[in-house]
Design a protein around this nucleic acid. Structure first.
Length: 553
RNA sequence: GCCCCCGUAGCUCAGCGGAGAGAGCGAAGGACUUCUAAUCCUUUGGUCGCAGGUUCGAGUCCUGCCGGGGGCACCA
């Protein structure tokens, strides 16, 4: 019996108990909460249903819980039901019923953990969106890993997800980038406000290789040549490193295209007509304060040029035109001020501000010997996505970025880049998968025929550690659903660690394969099914994080 | 000044209102002739920043303080 089925059983039973006593069944919550108590003495599962409902029924929680316990104990699937504490109802499943979780996981296979909570929703998920003026830094690496995992998780809940990267390839930053390239091509130092990393010289050299006459072109043409080729090279570089990181996007959107296509002007005109913009001090302002922003924002500057937000507005309109009913933006904490204006942009077009969801992630800091190290281009302490991958590999890099909440700032230790370390919990999880795969291989080599899981006697899985492992497997669908609902992929990573732990402990205690010449027993078969179920969940979970599930380590 | 995030074991961090608060790392000691020891088992370790409030019940929700980080442009 899966937790979801148990919740249904408890509710059905409660409805029955109340109605036979002539009590109001509407006092019951729509969904019954089933949790796994920390303390094993409190049963396999517990529900606070009686605590929640007793007051509305004018009963004492313990009295209500007692009635429920009595009725539930009649059920075959429930081995024990008892009232505890202020009115908790602690439940133990019959081993046979618990085995259904193993069946559910094996029968669903790759689909185990998928849900329908977001079925029919079309979601635009924008993340990374780092400026094309340099390689992806550690901050962008975090969003690449978390955003990609979130995209997978949302899709697993049935959403149609479009992953999108917004290139800010218009405006002053690009100018600085281009001037830096030209300076490097001439062998001059970077401009005061320019970029000075080694990659600038590399790109400048590549521009000259492709367009040997670039430097001798007249001013504007020269600038354009370096812009066109240089920015293109930077795009390719960014896409390539993200691809190698396991993160691909459906749409790479170029801000510049909004300006050249006239989308920005059209959006601005539309908002002028609707009154969302007003003219003051020679500029056009968005009434963003009406939508929760702390001040109105200039959209068209007094020199007639669009401000940065003009691109955001046109971009939102473009997304809206593509039919998304939810636009998620993942931004760094240094962009927290954007929330109000992005929602204002939506509201200005008459959309529900809730169709814009801004996820703010905290910064990534470099640490050495416990002390913070400032990332500085001049000091050469800028760490890029590629640096991290070169040092620890894609799996470990992704995993370490995903496993903590984005609400917490993340410290990356520079020692990672000099010391080889297996401390990353990703190896613990992957090792569990490799062990599982190994056991399945051994079983195959022994010629053990597992048969259909439907026919196996999973009621033989009665060891404490077996129960623990099975119930952990049973949690998986709810964990994925919660991670999607809260947009928190780290919950899935933490869950996989607990699953790996339950697996390793089980492995240590419960031998699955027959030894020597022993005959294959039904218990061997049941345990091998459990092994395969755990393997399935680890593989599904790691897949949702974009981390590989190795067959061997 | 205003806004957002954080404050939990020596360190890094989990803990979407539930019952002696958890993991990893660190420290001390154990377990491999048998399915992978990248594992497992002991032990060590805590005023959950402080003070109020809501609740049958608060690390979790609310308010106010105190620390740390980030943000408050006709820059992008």
């Amino acid at each position: 019996m899966t937790p979801a089925a148990l919740a249904d059983l408890v509710r059905t039973t409660a409805v029955h108990v109340l109605s036979t006593r002539g009590l109001d069944t509407t006092a019951l919550p729509a969904a019954v909460t089933i949790e796994r108590p920390r303390n094993p003495e409190h049963g396999d599962y517990a529900t606070n249903l009686a605590l929640q409902s007793a007051k509305r029924l004018g009963l004492s929680p313990r009295e209500l819980a007692g009635w429920l316990a009595e009725a539930l104990a009649e059920t075959d699937a429930i081995a024990a039901a008892e009232v505890a504490g202020p009115g908790f109802l602690n439940l133990r499943l019959a081993a046979d019923a618990q085995g259904d979780i193993v069946r559910a996981a094996l029968q669903a296979g790759d689909d185990y953990g998928r849900g329908e909570a977001l079925a029919g929703r079309s979601i635009n998920l924008e993340f990374v969106s780092a400026n094309p003026t340099g390689p992806i830094h550690l901050g962008g690496t975090r969003w690449a890993a978390v955003g990609d995992a979130l995209g997978r998780i949302l899709a697993a809940q049935g959403a149609q997800v479009t992953r999108e990267y917004y290139f800010n390839d218009a405006g002053a930053q690009i100018d600085r980038f281009v001037r830096s390239l030209i300076a490097a091509a001439k062998g001059e130092p970077a401009p005061e406000d320019g970029y000075g990393g080694a990659y600038i010289a590399d790109i400048a050299a590549e521009v000259l290789r492709r367009e040997p006459s670039a430097l001798s072109l007249p001013g504007a043409e020269r600038h354009e040549a370096f812009r066109r080729i240089g920015v293109g090279l930077m795009f390719d570089e960014i896409k390539r490193s993200l691809h190698e990181f396991g993160t691909d996007f459906d749409v790479y959107f170029h801000e510049n295209s909004l300006h050249t296509s006239g989308a920005v002007s059209r959006a601005v005109e539309q908002l002028k007509e609707s009154g969302a913009l007003y003219h003051a001090d020679g500029a056009w302002w968005l009434r963003s304060t009406e939508y929760g922003d702390d001040k109105d924002r200039v959209v068209i500057k007094s020199d007639g040029q669009p401000a940065y937000i003009a691109g955001d507005i046109a971009y939102f309109q473009d997304k809206r035109g593509r039919g998304f009913d939810l636009c998620i933006y993942m931004l760094g904490a240094d962009h927290h001020g954007y929330i109000g204006r992005l929602k204002a942009a939506a509201a200005a077009f008459g959309d529900d501000p809730d169709s814009v969801e801004v996820l703010i992630g905290q910064m990534v800091n470099l640490v050495k010997d416990g002390k913070p190290v400032r990332m500085s281009k001049r000091a050469g302490t800028v760490v890029t996505l590629e640096d991290l991958v070169d040092a620890v590999g894609v799996d470990a890099a992704r995993y370490s970025m995903i496993r903590s909440s984005v609400d917490s700032s993340l410290d990356v230790d520079l020692d990672l880049f000099s010391k080889r370390s297996n401390e990353n919990p990703v190896f613990y999880v992957q090792y569990a998968h490799a062990r599982l795969a190994s056991m399945a291989r051994n079983a195959a080599e022994l010629g053990i025929d597992l048969g259909d899981v439907a026919d196996a006697d999973l009621g033989l899985l009665t060891h404490d550690r077996e129960g623990e492992l099975i119930r952990t497997i049973g949690e998986f669908p709810a964990v994925v659903a919660t991670a999607a609902e809260l947009r928190e992929p780290h919950r899935l990573a933490r869950y996989l660690e607990s699953l790996a732990s339950a697996y390793h402990k089980w492995y240590d205690t419960c031998r699955a394969l027959p030894q020597g010449d022993e005959p294959v027993t039904p218990l061997n078969i049941a345990r091998l099914h459990l092994n395969n179920a755990a393997r399935q969940v680890l593989a599904n979970g790691l897949g949702l994080l974009g981390v590989t599930a190795p067959e061997r380590m």
